[in-house]
Write a protein that binds this DNA or RNA. Sequence first.
DNA 1: GAGCTATAGTTGAGTCTGCAAGCAAACTTA
DNA 2: TAAGTTTGCTTGCAGACTCAACTATAGCTC
Lengths: 179, 179
Amino acid sequence: MITQASSAESESGPAQQAWSRLLRAAAATKRELAAELQEAHGISITAYEALHVLSTAEDQQLKRGVLAERLALTPSGVTRLLEGLEQAGLVEKAACATDLRVSYARLTDAGRERLRAASCGHTGSIRALFERHLAPGEVEQLAELLGRLPGAQEEEGDVCPAAAAEVAAVADASSERTP
Amino acid sequence: MITQASSAESESGPAQQAWSRLLRAAAATKRELAAELQEAHGISITAYEALHVLSTAEDQQLKRGVLAERLALTPSGVTRLLEGLEQAGLVEKAACATDLRVSYARLTDAGRERLRAASCGHTGSIRALFERHLAPGEVEQLAELLGRLPGAQEEEGDVCPAAAAEVAAVADASSERTP
DNA sequence: GAGCTATAGTTGAGTCTGCAAGCAAACTTA
DNA sequence: TAAGTTTGCTTGCAGACTCAACTATAGCTC
């Protein structure tokens, strides 16, 4: 051995190792994909994620607070993010009929289009990135493990069905809330 | 099902799922641990990582560029980071005897002490965080998988033994460069 | 229904980090 | 040894987020 410890992980336990690798993997992959996405479609990773999250939401809209949770951002982070997306016309504000405090972020047609345009290349890059380093089964395994960490499991149960229904009625009642 | 898709991951493949979970897990855990570390010891996560990396390096010093790789930062990020750490007296600059362009970052006694003070609590929090969500074997598995992603594998082979040796001679020749 | 407390979101100020450009030292090549 | 190139680091500027403080609305309790 030339160095006392070859990596930053040295004698620390598996949790420390997982932690530092999580930080670095996130930083490195983010930088790589961000450059590509910005270059090709002029949006940041977070913006893409936001568009994607909205596109999968009922009526393509979400309370700002819920969006914050879904993206693991703080409320103020969402305000700033949407500020940009609204200015770009990709997202629009919508009021809530039952609670004047809440405001929804709704995907516009332009936003939907931009997402569609970006999604193919971006998801391809993501897949390529992961599959370059991991076997398919391992990718799933990784997803499963990461899914149990904080930040990733805030899913379902946040939709405020009652209020959402009312707003939906105002805006566009064509959704398929199947029962 | 009430919503069309309960999470941002919807119909996308495992790679997309892994990716978005990676982003969120990193964001969420980082925020949590950063607050704690800042509160308790007045340093950021990156600063802690830097101190830790340096502490495991030969002679507790590293070329700034190498430090950048190890932390998955850009060179400019390292310059700014060290700016702060140097001002705080936790790290000091050291010149390289053989190449005037390079400058080393070296842990000071104060830095070593600060790291020591912070490390117990911080590593404990990390372990707690991971073990709260994953079984011990899963933590190792996660570490292994993350270790194969970009950013995490830049280890060993960067030490520039020749130059390091010369600087070491100037500063402190007590290292165990065995063979 | 007047006050309390809780919740949703925004805003000001600051931190961290990156990119692009710049500078200086080292290396290459003729 | 004088270009020309590459490498290591720093700097100016900008973007993305956060925290803390604030506003406005809701909901509760008496």
